[in-house]
């Protein structure tokens, strides 16, 4: 996908959420100078898989909270930045300004057992994750047909022409172990 940074004017909300999603399942930069994506992985990650679309879906319930979530995440990022002594960066939001390892450290901290906001950050991470491994914003047949990065990476099988899955070959069709000695004819144990 060719897109220049000049054509795209990412706002704080987009830059922050994309950086968060890229921390969950990372991808490669979409263009030189892509700030949201850290670029630690080859191929598409959660952002390319549609994380922001999933977060914005009315079905998910996350959308109304996103402005507050972005603000809170950036406050956490500022605290982390100051705690570890990183320089201030005014060009992009504080979470996006963090190097990859520090983004990961913040996400680890926010989702750790016992963190008072664990539920929120885990929920946000789960939606970003689901974008990658399910394409939850798209019909699955469409996601596969358009090369969705997560389902493609997993080599998720494509369906029959009617959009349904069938696997006529599914079994080795031979005994592969001994049965438990107490097995009854009905298949349960006695």
């Amino acid at each position: 996908m060719e897109e220049s940074s000049a054509e795209r004017a990412p706002d704080v909300r987009t830059l922050t959420l994309e950086a968060f999603a890229d921390t969950v399942i990372p991808g490669e930069k979409r263009w030189p100078g892509d700030r949201a994506i850290a670029g630690v992985s080859i191929g598409g990650g959660s952002v390319q898989a549609g994380a922001l679309a999933v977060l914005e879906m009315p079905e998910g319930g996350m959308a109304p909270a996103l402005d507050d979530v972005v603000a809170a995440l950036n406050v956490h990022a500022e605290h982390h930045r100051d705690r570890v002594g990183l320089p201030t960066n005014e060009e992009v939001p504080p979470f996006t300004a963090l190097p990859w390892a520090d983004r990961t450290a913040v996400l680890n901290e926010l989702t750790a057992v016992g963190h008072p906001e664990k539920e929120l950050w885990t929920g946000l991470a789960l939606f970003c994750y689901m974008a990658f491994d399910t394409g939850a914003h798209l019909p699955t047949t469409e996601a596969l047909a358009t090369g969705h990065p997560g389902l493609t990476l997993m080599r998720f099988q494509t369906p029959d022409t009617d959009g349904l899955w069938r696997f006529p070959d599914y079994s080795y069709r031979r005994p592969l172990s001994k049965l438990h000695p107490d097995t009854l004819e009905n298949g349960s144990l006695k």
């Binding site: 599914y170 079994s171 080795y172 069709r173 031979r174 005994p175 592969l176 172990s177 001994k178 049965l179 438990h180 000695p181 097995t183 009905n186 298949g187 349960s188």
Partner: peptide, 26 residues
């Protein structure tokens, strides 16, 4: 065993390899 899937067959074979039993489930 005829209706045991590949994944089930794999688990059964692994159990057998480790000296365990494994049953097709009703």
């Amino acid at each position: 065993w005829d209706t045991t899937t590949y994944a089930g067959g794999l688990w059964a074979a692994a159990c057998d390899h480790a000296g365990r039993t494994c049953n097709p489930v009703p």
